[in-house]
Design a protein around this nucleic acid. Structure first.
Length: 571
RNA sequence: GCGGCUGUAGCUCAGCGGAUUAGAGCAUCGGUCUACGGAACCGAGGGUCGGGGGUUCGAAUCCCUCCAGCCGCACCA
């Protein structure tokens, strides 16, 4: 059936189509009415007619009869106002719909979301926050609309550093190494390996030899490597749990997974005639990419030393996801600095025929996390900040705020609520700004319980739940949505926009659009509250207001859930 | 040098498939109010939409150019 917007757009398109086939009504929400259609002006130009005449003709065509009234405004805008009966019937439909008008994608698509991607035996820091949070929001929302999501946590589990990491593990002794890693002290472990490598020539020799053993498949070396990977994945899972992120160990498909496919990648590129040798390395030169001297820029698939670069791994991953997983969409939630590399990988994959045009493939790039002084987020001593420490601090602060407010929750329950609030604060701050921008990590701002923050939205939801609890059992079947008060009508219109907000978010892989929608809805809500007392109202009016509260609460909960944010019953 | 991203009220940000007065939040100031949860609501001030050109009846939005910041530009992923 489609959203209210889609119904109107489809009807209106009939009128436009009669005059200029395929013309776009350019329908959108409006300050001047419920919706406005701006497409008349462009169409009038191609027709060579006066815009207002054309607008009047469309208004008179009657395609929206029974749904909305049309008024011609200004130079030729169509201001569209929903008929009360239509509005009421739309709301009635939402009441009985778990998904509040959000339709399932049919047939369902398979969407591979590549996100988080920490490095084995290396601490997760703020740099991983955005990929993890944005990717998880996209994955959850794709699932919400019925698509099949295959999450891929492309962890860094291969390459030359593992020679040194394994040697360090041996030097420490397995038991001690495991103990260090299992408590999540990855920084100490990694830095221990690093400094041994920098200081000790013998250690360097052992490390290099160990890399050869690892790549050669030496069983004992593989066993040691496996320890590092398993310990790290266990640790990552703890971090994900603390963030309430849906990634599981099963989603970990690291670089090493593609090792066996790399030779095939090279051979097939060779067979396709795409491979060239340059400076001893085997490369593909996708058109349109140049280096600093204006010469063609290579994607290095196999290095001079015959080792494979990460381009080869990324190409193998594309092939695997398209051919074996049957992906319809590939989303790479990877930082903006990788734009060129990924663009080249995608270009080569398209050239090779591994990535058909029918498969949407998008680099969901994002900006950096900055500290309040607008520099890259580091500690005062210049080290990266552990992700868990940031979250723990957010939880502590949220907990303090609950105490200060005089909550009557038991410590355990309070801690759990504080955790949910902290997750909301951190995630919403990340998700609510346009992802390409850098953003400042400022706990004070994101934890504020007022303004455009995660906790504020949770609070808006909790207030609604409180009212609904007091109202007790409800039979909302025969609600009469009269919507006499303008704030009630505004709220109703906001509720109708939910499916469009989700569609818009997915279209642009832009979680901030859903955030903007939810915050706007919360604002409509508070205006409604103020003007329309719910529990003290009587009869049909009371029921109508309760129904609006019910719809609003469910919309907020569903929307926050799509973002990976909990909607607690009380705060 | 080439390429990418960013530049919108004091601060943090929406809006950028052009369109009827450029919107929010925070902060500031002034109100509402014995509060269905005041962690609220209403109002006010505050913007040459980085600068300059261009296309258009109309540009924050499209094109060109310049400026500033950040990031990439061959074998570490």
């Amino acid at each position: 059936m489609g959203s209210t917007y889609e119904i109107l757009a489809e009807r209106l398109a009939r009128s436009f189509d009669r005059l200029v086939p395929g013309a776009d009504p350019a329908l959108r929400a409006s300050d001047h009415a419920d919706y406005q259609a701006n497409g008349v002006m462009a169409m009038a130009k191609t027709l060579g007619r006066a815009p207002r005449d054309v607008a009047s003709e469309i208004a008179a065509a009657g395609d929206l009869d029974g749904l909305a009234t049309i008024e011609v405004a200004g130079p030729g805008f169509l201001n569209i106002t929903l008929e009360p009966a239509f509005l009421a019937s739309r709301l009635g439909t939402l009441l009985g719909d778990e998904r509040l008008g959000l339709e399932l994608v049919r047939p369902a698509k398979t969407v591979v979301v590549d996100y988080s991607a920490p490095n084995v035996a290396k601490e997760m820091h703020v740099g991983h926050l955005r990929s993890t949070v944005i990717g998880d929001a996209l994955a959850r929302t794709e699932r919400l609309v019925g698509n099949t999501v295959i999450a891929r946590n492309h962890v860094g589990d291969w390459g030359t550093p593992f020679g040194m990491l394994i040697e360090h593990l041996l030097d420490l002794g397995e038991d001690r190494a495991v103990a260090e890693l299992s408590i999540g002290d990855l920084n100490t472990f990694y830095q221990g390996a690093r400094s041994a490598f920098d200081a000790d020539e013998d250690f360097q020799r052992r490390s290099r030899a160990r890399v050869v053993l690892l790549q050669g498949g030496d069983p004992e070396t593989r066993r040691l490597w496996r320890i590092l990977v398993d310990q790290s994945v266990t640790y990552f899972s703890q971090v994900y749990a603390k963030l309430d992120v849906t990634l599981t160990p099963e989603d970990v498909v690291g670089e090493s997974f593609y090792n066996d496919a790399l030779e095939g990648v090279v051979a097939d590129l060779e067979g396709l005639g795409l491979l060239e040798e340059s400076g001893g390395a085997r490369c593909v030169f996708p058109p349109g990419f140049t280096n600093r001297d204006g010469e063609p820029l290579p994607l290095i698939v196999q290095k001079r030393d015959e080792g494979f670069g990460y381009a080869a791994t990324d190409l193998a991953a594309v092939r695997d996801r398209v051919a074996r997983l049957h992906a319809d969409e590939l989303l790479y939630v990877v930082g903006a600095p990788q734009v060129q590399h990924l663009a080249m990988v995608f270009a080569v994959a398209r050239q090779a025929g591994w990535l058909p045009d029918t498969v949407r493939c998008e680099h969901v790039a994002f900006g950096s996390v900055l500290s309040p002084d607008r520099k890259m987020y580091k500690t005062r001593s210049g080290e990266t900040v552990k992700l868990v420490e940031l979250i723990d601090e957010a939880i502590d602060r949220a907990d303090d705020a609950l105490v200060a407010r005089g909550t009557d929750l038991e410590p355990d329950a309070r801690r759990e609520l504080a955790t949910q609030i902290a997750q909301a604060a951190v995630k919403y701050a990340d998700l609510s700004t346009e992802r390409q921008r850098d953003y400042v990590f400022d706990l004070d701002r994101m934890l504020a319980f007022e303004g455009d923050t995660g906790p504020y939205l949770q609070y808006a939801h909790a207030r609604l739940r409180s009212i609904l609890r007091r109202a007790g059992e409800l039979d909302l079947a025969g609600v009469d949505f009269a919507l006499v008060d303008p704030t009630a009508r505004d709220l109703a219109l906001g509720l109708l926009g939910w499916p469009d907000a989700v569609a818009s978010m997915l279209e642009g892989a832009a979680p901030h659009r859903l955030c903007t929608y939810l915050f706007d809805l919360a604002q409509r809500l508070t205006a409604f509250y103020e003007a329309c007392p719910v529990l003290s109202a009587e009869g049909a009016v009371r029921l109508e207001r309760l129904a609006l509260c019910d719809l609003a609460a469910r919309t907020l909960a569903l929307g926050l859930g799509a973002l990976g944010i909990a909607a607690p019953e009380r705060m």
